[in-house]
């Protein structure tokens, strides 16, 4: 079991009003899964992903990642987990501007204190893996949206994390590019990577092997998809 969360809650207070972004989530993810999280806007998908990615801390509940209790760890420990265990892909790419693709991909390795030469080699390999071996010197503004997201995926992969988290990775892309990015995720999953992704589109979710549906901060459905591409 790679991920196990129990009774996970995240509350926000806006003025005097309490917002239950996550209202008691139980979820387990096994190594090698390709899991899609769906749900209407405001159902808590991003909140859940941020907690899974250790970018945020829950109000209450347990989060065990790779047999390690994550809830309650301090800042520095969480940074370490983000660095070595998690690869995060954002809807808006979140690449450093005026910085080449290679340097963007190197970033996690820099904070992992990897020596320069090895770092360059691994970053280049990761870019080749996502099909951008010929664009390593390009800066984000010199790349298309799909290429930018590939750079972001290479950056998420480069540290060989236990899990790849993607929050609406195709949200800013046209349908054909979305299709390419989904194929990339599928092939990465085929190569053994565990992937959790959030999407609004059924067609994309259909590529997943398991779909979890959220509503108002709760899991309302959790189903295995038997045959790839055949609906549920």
């Amino acid at each position: 079991m790679l991920i196990s969360i129990r009774e996970l809650r995240k509350l926000y207070y806006v003025g005097t009003e309490e917002v239950r972004a996550l209202d008691g989530i139980d979820l387990t993810v096994e190594a090698g899964e390709l899991l899609a999280i769906m749900g209407p806007s405001g159902s808590g998908k991003s909140t859940l992903m941020n907690l899974l990615g250790c970018l945020d801390t829950p109000t209450s509940g347990d989060y065990v990642l790779n047999e390690r209790q994550v809830s309650g760890l301090d800042d520095t420990a969480l940074a370490g987990i983000r660095n070595s265990e998690i690869g995060f892909v954002f809807q808006t790419f979140n690449l450093l501007p005026r910085t080449t693709a290679l340097e963007n991909v190197e970033l996690p390795l820099i904070y992992g204190r990897m020596p320069r030469r090895e770092r360059k080699r691994k970053a280049r390999e990761a870019l080749e893996k996502v099909g951008l071996g010929d664009r390593i010197r390009h800066q984000p503004n010199e790349l298309s949206g799909g290429q930018r997201q590939r750079v972001a995926i290479a950056r998420a992969l480069v540290n060989e994390p236990s899990i790849l988290l993607a929050d609406e990775p195709t949200g800013n892309l046209d349908s054909r590019t979305s299709e390419e990015i989904m194929s990339l995720f599928a092939s990465l999953n085929g190569a053994g990577n565990t992937i959790v992704l959030v999407t609004h589109e059924e067609s994309i979710a259909e590529r997943a092997r398991r779909i979890v549906r959220l509503l108002d901060g709760r899991v309302v459905e959790d189903v295995q998809v038997t045959a790839k591409g055949s609906g549920r």
Partner: peptide, 8 residues
């Protein structure tokens, strides 16, 4: 971004 990829 830096923090997200592991900067302490």
């Amino acid at each position: 971004i830096r923090k997200a990829v592991g900067a302490r």
